[in-house]
């Protein structure tokens, strides 16, 4: 029989990729999360997770750091993206390049350098671990906030804004009623790009807080480094659920705002 190429064959590489690097690992996480060290099914890890305050503290600290990082990034990134996308500054892409350039440098390197700078101004993980961690996090995740906001801002409907101004809205009203609603998709992608990754990162917080701020990522690492695979997997599983919930929520918001299509 003659081999006939069908269009659906194009999907084969992607299916292989997805199953190898997404489905199977997640399956393994779930398997280890709900089994004990002998490989039997068990909810021991779950019981342990909910039975003492260690994990609750870890989650609270992670949420705190993640939310603060996201807020600060938005506060810095939003106006910046707005101005960079405006006609006056958007003549060439050099400026935006400058802001996302740190992304091209290995982040371990960047973090080590940040640590040295913070030492020089005597702001160390020893005396102010949260501040040091937040500075490192904001520095690392700012490009991920600026970029989606910038692309959304480029697509702002200027005629709507002009119409609002013509009909008597002052600049503040134009901003609140026209610019912000139009940029919601960008804000949403910015939040998804920072909130969860910050919670699960551990190199930055370890290096900059000198081990004084323990995020979920650190907790998972401690468990895996000491062959507590089941406990580590259950924590990873909880994080996975957090990711799913946050994705679900953002999808709903996006729907409501009848998605203008963010970058991601």
């Amino acid at each position: 029989m003659k081999f006939r190429f069908q269009r659906k064959y194009f999907s084969i590489p992607y299916i292989i990729f997805l199953s190898l690097f997404v489905v199977i690992p997640i399956g393994l996480i779930i398997y280890y999360a709900f089994s004990d060290s002998t490989g039997m099914l068990s909810i021991e890890a779950a019981r342990k997770f909910f039975s003492d305050t260690t994990k609750l503290d870890v989650i609270l600290v992670s949420l705190f750091v993640a939310i603060q990082t996201t807020l600060i990034c938005l506060l810095i990134g939003y106006p910046l993206a707005y101005f960079l996308a405006s006609k006056k500054y958007n003549k060439n892409a050099v400026l935006i390049m400058l802001f996302i350039m740190p992304m091209w440098i290995n982040f371990v390197l960047r973090t080590t350098a940040t640590r040295d700078i913070l030492f020089a101004i005597n702001l160390t993980g020893g005396n102010s671990p949260y501040l040091a961690t937040l500075i490192g996090m904001v520095y690392n995740y700012l490009p991920f906030v600026i970029l989606p906001l910038y692309t959304t801002m480029l697509k702002l409907d200027h005629s709507q804004m002009e119409a609002a101004a013509d009909l008597g809205a002052n600049p503040a009203q134009v901003f609140i009623k026209s610019v912000i609603p139009q940029s919601v998709p960008g804000i949403i992608s910015a939040i998804t790009m920072t909130l969860v990754p910050v919670m699960s990162s551990y190199v930055i917080s370890d290096a900059l807080s000198e081990g004084n701020v323990t995020l979920i990522g650190n907790s998972i690492y401690i468990n895996f480094a000491n062959y507590q695979w089941n406990n580590g997997s259950f924590t990873a599983f909880v994080l996975l659920i957090v990711v799913l919930v946050s994705m679900f929520m953002t999808r709903n918001v996006n729907k409501q705002e009848n998605a203008r299509g963010g970058l991601w």
């Binding site: 342990k48 003492d52 305050t53 260690t54 503290d57 870890v58 609270l60 600290v61 705190f64 949260y130 081990g211 004084n212 701020v213 323990t214 650190n218 907790s219 401690i222 468990n223 000491n226 507590q228």
Partner: peptide, 16 residues
């Protein structure tokens, strides 16, 4: 290790 993880973990400070 449980003890160690407890030691390594901080409760959220009051100001936070």
């Amino acid at each position: 290790l449980d003890m160690w993880e407890r030691v390594r973990t901080n409760a959220l400070p009051l100001w936070a």
